[in-house]
Design a protein around this nucleic acid. Structure first.
Lengths: 352, 352
DNA sequence: TTGAAAGCGCTAACAC
DNA sequence: GTGTTAGCGCTTTCAA
């Protein structure tokens, strides 16, 4: 065995009795080499268990095929599915995929994007809704320009562009339409007092859902005051706490539109703890249709967002030729999945 | 703006009026440089928005701090948590983390490990239970030796080593103990006819759980025939189908020990569809305690496996010095989480 | 204190 | 056909 450390192309060349150029040629396979030589080289490489040094290769070859995904966390079903979609699409095309999580910390996000620039990622995908404040807008603008200057691409996945002029690609769900449809579903069942649980002012995804919710209410002839949004943010814990609070007050409602399925899970638990039955007393709907939504008690009515497809679409549009991709803004459709968490409101409570 | 492409250290040097060596020195920060020069260099780098080329750096520096995790899929809560643990621990130590998914395909696993060798990963972590066949043993032995020869480490995380002599680190849960405790819990509640749903012969994790289950049964004085294991494998779909089948037959049982929480979800659904009440007619327990297990109907009694901690432990032991790490085999404890899916068996059915 | 120069492992001209 | 060689962008002696 050679000394500790990796086997280099030189050692393979020596063993095969050829030059490093020849070894490089047979291994790359993009240059005609006589079968006899070829075999000798391959045999030597195999015997030495040689693996090329990706760094040296990337250095001379001008980068490598790599896409990076930036998420808040992988343990949330929604993000996990998007990541899976990105990974799958990248792998199918022979691209490497690196996923980084930020835990919602802007600093970690910046560090990671910086790292990806150092690593030469050719595509960077930022996933999920965010609170669009000035600091965020500035950050993203910088990412977009820096990446663009290096010939790489930034994809905003599940969020809009903070400014249409920055060099970024966008692919997202039509949250407003989805929320509108879901609210209409509740309205059709007879509900008039629907609280939206899980708002987060400034958050792109949630604001869009709230808009759809308000629009649907208005279209059904309800006054603006009919809308009641609780800004508790996302997550099971937030839903649980907010619903518990709400139940303590004297608010009157017959249905809850949860910002996402996890909020719905928390809300349902709070309702059960308070002795309220879902959906007999209160109807609940969620958003995203995570795999376990059908195992909730009761199975949850929610809107299906094809998350994995969102991830796949992100890499697909990023890998298209510049012309086609320029300024692209893709919208993915969603649809309601009806299960058992919605019923008509209790008698006499279907008015506002 | 410079020509399309990345800004190099040379451009920064020119702009600052110093040599590349000086720039390298101030950027690395591991060499004394007068404040004045330092400032000029930093200013130039900032103005050009310079980012070092990680490949060039790794090439000369002899690799980079990177750990790679190999999973079946990120959309399974268990794997996602392990991945999150690895990512978090790596990030805290300033290491890069790359996650690759295989979908259970050995070929993709091999390709990915090969890629990680090319990329110079210093730690490769293989996660989760597997079916240990000859091909697998051979593969892992090769990974271990190849990685070791390159000065890197292989960590088997959530699975034992196929052979104690290969240079690999191991960290896993004590599945046998966990299953033993859970089975005892069911036994204490009065159950005697407990079916194990979700066996997968040869799979390390599942075989261990089955062993714990059988051992507990035996200790309670039950005959070997009391054990009834259905080899349907893991996943919600598998649990749903297997339980539906089981209900069609004339098997008699009062409790089911599901191979993991997802199997439990499927089983519960099948039971509900068949009009059987959980836990009044049949008790059900799962394994892993995924976050949504408490939202099942009924909330699931299961065993808590600290998955994120498993991931963190994997990188922790891999990053320890050679002496300490050598032949290390770490076992993480687990404990039962009691919720509402277990009750005493219906009257008169507590015998075998 | 700083610069010149020698590589790290590989690919791609360019010779022969 | 196949070898020689010039870098890719960076770090790090070694001199000055």
């Amino acid at each position: 065995m050679a000394a500790k450390g990796r086997v280099t192309i030189r050692e393979v060349a020596e063993r095969a009795g050829v030059s490093v150029a020849t070894v490089s040629r047979v291994l790359s396979g993009n240059y005609p080499v006589p079968p006899a030589t070829r075999t000798r080289v391959l045999r030597a490489a195999r015997a030495l268990d040689y693996v090329a040094n990706a760094h040296a290769r990337a250095l001379v070859g001008g980068g490598r095929k790599m896409v990076a995904v930036v998420l808040r966390q992988v343990t949330s079903p929604f993000y996990a599915h998007v990541a899976e979609g990105v990974e799958a699409e990248a792998a199918e095309r022979g691209w490497l995929c690196l996923v980084g999580t930020t835990g919602g910390d802007p600093q970690r996000e910046m560090d990671f994007v910086q790292l990806m620039r150092e690593e030469g990622a050719r595509v960077v995908i930022l996933v999920g809704g965010v609170v669009e404040d000035d600091a965020y807008r500035e950050r993203v603008t910088h990412y977009a320009q820096a990446l663009d200057a290096a010939g790489a691409r930034l994809v905003l996945c599940g969020r809009p562009a903070p400014d249409p002029d920055i060099p970024a690609l966008v692919v997202e769900f039509d949250n407003e339409a989805g929320a509108h449809a879901l609210t209409s579903h509740l309205l059709s069942a007879g509900h008039r007092r629907i609280v939206f649980l899980g708002g987060l002012p400034g958050n792109t995804a949630l604001d869009a859902r709230v808009s759809g919710y308000r629009a649907a209410l208005a279209e059904h002839g309800l006054p603006p005051e009919a809308a009641h949004v609780v800004d508790c943010g996302l997550g099971r814990g937030a839903g649980l706490r907010a619903m518990t609070e709400l139940l303590k007050g004297d608010h009157d409602f017959t249905a809850v539109f949860a910002g996402d399925d996890m909020v719905a899970a928390g809300a349902i638990r709070a309702l059960a703890d308070a002795g309220r039955s879902v959906p007999d007393d209160i109807s609940v709907v969620g958003y995203n249709d995570i795999p376990l939504a059908e195992d909730f008690n009761p199975p949850l009515t929610t809107v299906r967002t094809p998350s994995e497809e969102l991830g796949r679409a992100a890499v697909r549009i990023a890998l298209r030729d510049p012309e086609q991709a320029a300024g692209a803004h893709h919208l993915l459709g969603t649809h309601i999945v009806v299960r058992d968490s919605v019923a008509a409101p209790p008698p006499g409570r279907d008015t506002f």
